[in-house]
Each structure stands twice: as structure tokens, then as C-alpha cells.
């Protein structure tokens, strides 16, 4: 009995050895949260594209916003013996045991976009954007755009208490710190939605002398900015000229507004988190190069000078 088991085990090992050495393409499992937003859909599209470009066999699992589905997907990836695992964790806690299983199986795990609370020796690296830095880039742009002129800013915050709202606010304030001509005169939440962005902007316009004393709008995401642009237009002002508009995310619709001269700048939250992740994995799998524990993606600034129409054309089919 024992020898039969051992023989079977050896056989399985041999098969495993043959497949891993025989297959040219790497197999990487990707556990995605779901498709709750356009940005998430674009991230999925770009991850597939990046994998195809590098000849990687990507195994995709959609968790539909459930952690238990992600843990199941990770266990099945481990059982299949993939070369590496990418995961966009839906929540921060509860990953210790499954990450330990991956570590025991010597499969490197890369976190995309979001962080986990587990000890950082349980995963290879995390790829993500620095929300605070995004806000700062937006603030820096405004400082450069207005120069020494006095400027009253109104701010559309994200959902109250959410980490993007807190960090993008703090980052922007850091960007405009030391420039006393720029003041945030009103700040309200627009819940990251177009409807609320429009409604809150309407009240800003009325509260600030029909909008005549507002010089710029800073929105924590593009959707709120798109709503606010409509409110400004309906109030008879010119968005982009009478009121400067800077926001974050770089979704396709804001590039249409920029092409029409109705928005001024946006900071990109790149949906291409997989590119840097694949690069780090390639180096690690080749000769064991350890990447840093956090790889920060670029927070690129787009303005009207960056051919917004072309960017729109490039982005519109990514699934945003």
C-alpha cells in the first residue's frame, strides 16, 4: 500500500516537473474583486492585455465582491501549481492562512491596488497608487496655474470617511500649503457620484455670490467634476475659464470635457497595476530579485495640452 502511494506521488511529481519545465509560458492566477466600477473593469481589461503582451497564461477569477470567493480562487490556484498569483483583495483582513498556504507552496503573491493587514513577508510586493500623492499633484498644478493671483477654491470630497476622500484632501492641502493666495472656501461631500457632484456644485454657486467669487474647483474624482461642470454651465458660467477644474482618476469622460475646454486637469489613477506587477514577478522568477514591498504607480497629470481627444479614444474601449 505504502509503496503504491509513494509511486503515485513520484509519478505526480514527475508530471508536475515535466509541465513546469516543458511549458514555455508562465501561468499566473489573477483574483479580481469584481466589476463594481468602470475603473475596475478597465483594470481587468489592462491586466489581460499586459499578460497577452508578455505571453503569460492568465487564469482569471472574478470574486463578485466576496472574500470567500477570493480565498477559494487562491486555493485553487495553489492546487493548480501556478507560477504566481495576483490578487486585488476585497477587504484588508483575514488573509493570513491562505497567504501562508501560498508561501508554503512557494508561489509568490502580488497585491494589486489595495493593501492587506497581514505581515509583509507573506506576499512578494504590493502595487498601488499613493492617494495622498495624487491630491498633491492636483494641488501643485493649481499653484502653477494661478500663480500669485488670489484664488478661492471649492472642494467636492469623496464619500465622507473613505480613505480616498481623506488622503486626497490632505494631499491637496499639502500641495497648496505655503501659497496664501489659494484658499479652500467651501468643502462638501459629493459621494463620488455625478448627481451629488452636480447638486452640491449648484449650492456652492449660490452660496458664493453666484459663482463669481469661485476661481477653481477641486473634485476628488472625475465623475463629480463632470456633474459640477453641468451645474456651472447651467448657471451661465464657463467651466474651464471662469472656474478652473482639476480632478482625479482620469476616466474617459473627463477627457471629452477637457477636449471641449470645460475641464483643465486630471491626475491619473492608472488601471495598469498589472504591468509593474508582471515586471517585478519576471525579475523575481528569473533570478530571485526581491522587489520593494510597495511599488508606487505613477500619478500622471493630464492637461488640455496633452491632446485629450486622443487619450479619450485610447481609453474609451478599456471598459471604464
Amino acid at each position: 500500500m505504502l509503496s503504491k502511494k509513494a509511486w503515485m506521488g513520484a509519478c505526480a511529481l514527475a508530471v508536475l516537473a515535466f509541465t513546469t519545465s516543458g511549458a514555455l509560458a508562465q501561468t499566473i492566477g489573477f483574483s479580481q474583486i469584481g466589476s463594481e466600477s468602470g475603473w475596475r473593469a478597465a483594470e481587468t481589461t489592462l491586466t489581460r492585455q499586459e499578460a497577452e503582451k508578455r505571453g503569460i497564461d492568465l487564469k482569471f477569477a472574478d470574486a463578485q465582491q466576496k472574500q470567500e470567493n477570493q480565498i477559494k480562487a487562491l486555493r485553487s490556484f495553489i492546487a493548480q501549481g501556478v507560477d504566481a498569483i495576483l490578487i486585488a483583495p476585497v477587504v484588508a483582513t483575514g488573509w493570513d492562512s491562505v497567504l501562508e498556504e501560498a508561501k508554503e507552496a512557494e508561489i509568490p503573491v502580488v497585491l494589486l491596488d489595495r493593501q492587506v493587514d497581514s505581515s509583509d513577508d507573506l506576499y512578494l510586493t504590493a502595487v498601488g497608487s499613493d492617494l495622498h500623492h495624487e491630491g498633491k499633484v492636483a494641488g501643485d498644478w493649481l499653484v502653477g496655474a494661478v500663480g500669485d493671483k488670489p484664488c478661492n477654491v471649492v472642494e467636492l470630497q469623496g464619500t465622507t470617511g473613505s480613505s480616498p476622500a481623506i488622503k486626497r484632501k490632505a494631499g491637496f492641502e499639502e500641495g497648496i500649503a505655503g501659497h496664501d493666495n489659494i484658499k479652500i472656501v467651501r468643502s462638501q461631500t459629493g459621494d463620488f457620484t455625478r448627481t451629488k457632484g452636480k447638486e452640491v456644485m449648484e449650492s456652492f454657486l449660490k452660496a458664493e455670490n453666484g459663482g463669481k467669487s469661485i476661481c477653481a474647483l477641486y473634485a476628488h474624482n472625475d465623475d463629480m467634476a463632470v456633474g459640477a461642470i453641468q451645474a456651472i454651465k447651467e448657471a451661465g458660467l464657463k467651466p474651464g475659464e471662469d472656474i478652473l477644474i482639476v480632478s482625479i482618476d482620469a476616466v474617459p469622460d473627463i477627457f471629452q470635457a477637457m477636449a471641449a475646454g470645460e475641464a483643465n486637469a486630471t491626475v491619473e489613477l492608472t488601471p495598469n497595476m498589472a504591468g509593474p506587477a508582471f515586471d517585478a514577478l519576471a525579475a523575481y522568477l528569473k533570478d530571485g530579485t526581491e522587489p520593494p514591498k510597495f511599488i508606487q504607480t505613477e500619478s500622471k497629470l493630464y492637461t488640455q495640452a496633452d491632446d485629450p481627444q486622443a487619450v479619450y479614444e485610447a481609453k474609451k474601449d478599456l471598459g471604464y
Binding site: S37, T193, R194, T195, K198
Partner: peptide
């Protein structure tokens, strides 16, 4: 009305 107001249908938030 809600969709016409923002010139778009936002299934997540409408």
C-alpha cells in the same frame, strides 16, 4: 429625470 439630469445612467448610484 435623474438620468437626463446628468446626461447618463449611473446604475450603481441612481
Amino acid at each position: 429625470i435623474a438620468a437626463a439630469d446628468i446626461k447618463g445612467a449611473d446604475a450603481n448610484n441612481a
